[in-house]
Design a protein around this nucleic acid. Structure first.
Length: 317
DNA sequence: TAGGCCATCTGGTCCT
DNA sequence: AGGACCAGATGGCCTA
């Protein structure tokens, strides 16, 4: 089953609204058991019979095999020659070894993807993003950070969130909005239609269930919380910290990541969490403004916003 | 039940 | 020759 429209050149671009993700990982262990069973079953398969059956089919379909996909991409697979005796055993062994390698390779790929999940906004081990959504969100995250860095202007959370949610599915958009405590329906509506996110803390676009899902698994985020936590210590119940690093100015980090982050990040900020979620307190160069625009804007505490050149200078020196 | 996501197997292709 | 990579096929699980 395709995960993207066939005519879509970029599979990461189109949202899949209504998709049933993010998916819970609570069944991962169960899934692992099933996978082991399946693997055992496949390993015990008599590949001679399987090969025979397929060869029969291929003989029947040999005439149609000449056809090619649109675009000249031939997907034809040449009929396999049936092997027998020692050669067959050897082939089967090699096939099993190849399968094991492929499993290992895919596990490595999934491991890398899991690492990616942990560094994009809204990470949760309890309710993780799908692969495609993780890649989309990561791409948007990089883009949003790059745009902020290159603009050299004071960041705007709504614009940041828009970039972040571009092309994401509605559920994921709601989750990101939940992390930001933004109104997903409003901040994605139109560039000029920006309403203060704090007027309705959880007015989600589609359903209350989305709101509940988001708040259940993800620590809520807001400049209000940032501001508050700046003057308060972090709560001790930190477990998971969705990293939301907006140009390095504020972020969710695990407690054990704070030390090095503080050391390396000149623009560390502070945020705090919703009940049950991590709450981080870090030295901040910014404070949230308390005027009518709050919390759409950030304000520097001790220094003006620096341009990209100034930012880079800190690293180049 | 349909659709989405996923893991796995599999054969083809490319590279070393 | 063998391993890595890729994409198609398949079937299971989950959710709306």
């Amino acid at each position: 089953m395709l995960t993207a429209p066939p005519d879509e050149p970029d599979a990461m671009r189109e949202p899949q609204f209504g998709a049933s993700f993010p998916r819970s990982s609570v069944h991962d262990s169960h899934r692992q058991d099933k996978q082991d069973q399946r693997r055992q079953r496949f390993d015990n398969l008599d590949l001679h019979e399987e090969s025979s059956d397929r060869d029969d089919e291929e003989e029947r379909d040999e005439d149609q095999d000449e056809e090619q996909d649109e675009g000249g991409l031939s997907k034809r697979r040449t009929p396999r020659r049936r092997q027998s005796g020692a050669g067959s055993d050897r082939a089967r062994l090699r096939r099993q070894e190849a399968n094991a390698r492929e499993r290992s390779r895919m596990h490595g790929l999934n491991s890398a993807l899991e690492s990616l999940r942990k560094v994009v906004p809204c990470y949760s081990s309890a309710q993780k993003l799908s692969k495609i959504e993780t890649l989309r969100l990561a791409k948007n995250y990089i883009r949003a950070l790059s745009e902020t860095l290159s603009s050299g202007t004071r960041p705007d959370l709504v614009a940041f969130a828009r970039t972040l949610c571009k092309g994401l599915s509605q559920p994921t958009t709601n989750l990101v909005a939940g992390c930001l405590q933004l109104n997903a329906g409003r901040f994605l509506a139109s560039p000029g239609d920006v309403s203060p996110p704090c007027d309705a803390p959880y007015a989600y676009a589609n359903a209350e269930t989305s709101r509940a899902d988001a708040t259940k698994h993800f620590r809520s985020f807001s400049y209000c919380n940032m501001y508050d936590s700046y003057y308060n210590s972090a709560s001790p119940d930190s477990q998971l910290s969705p990293p939301l690093n907006y140009n390095g100015m504020f972020s969710f980090q695990k407690p054990d990541e704070q030390t090095e982050c503080v050391a390396s990040c000149r623009y560390g900020a502070t945020c705090c969490g919703a009940p049950g979620r991590a709450s981080i307190s870090r030295p901040s160069a910014y404070t949230a403004s308390t005027d009518s625009h709050f919390p759409n804007e950030l304000r520097m505490r001790n220094q003006p916003f620096q341009t990209q050149e100034q930012l880079n200078a800190g690293y180049h020196n």
